[in-house]
């Protein structure tokens, strides 16, 4: 199973992103990440399975969800 991570700054945004992706039929899971620890500090990532990261990011951008870079 392919795993893709989308970085998101806050838990509220991550929750909203998960909800939006679910409504588009994309299964997502919230994960605490250390990948951004030195650049952003504590953060969250949306883990998506079996879907295109680009497609998910497009959907989230459409809903004004600000994504974090790594």
């Amino acid at each position: 199973m392919d795993r893709e991570l989308i970085y998101i700054g806050s838990i509220t945004r991550a929750m909203k992103a998960k909800e939006i992706l679910k409504s588009h039929g994309i299964m997502a899971h919230i994960e605490r990440t250390t990948d951004t620890l030195d650049t952003k500090g504590c953060g969250y990532a949306i883990l998506i399975f079996d879907s295109s990261k680009a497609e998910a990011e497009k959907i989230l951008s459409k809903h004004n969800i600000k994504l974090s870079s790594k």
């Binding site: 700054g9 806050s10 838990i11 620890l37 952003k40 500090g41 504590c42 600000k66």
Partner: peptide
């Protein structure tokens, strides 16, 4: 502390954080 962007000494600029 907000649990977000903790490396930045500025307060997050987004709600609700």
């Amino acid at each position: 502390g907000t649990g977000s962007v903790s490396v930045d000494l500025n307060q997050p600029d987004f709600t609700p954080d």
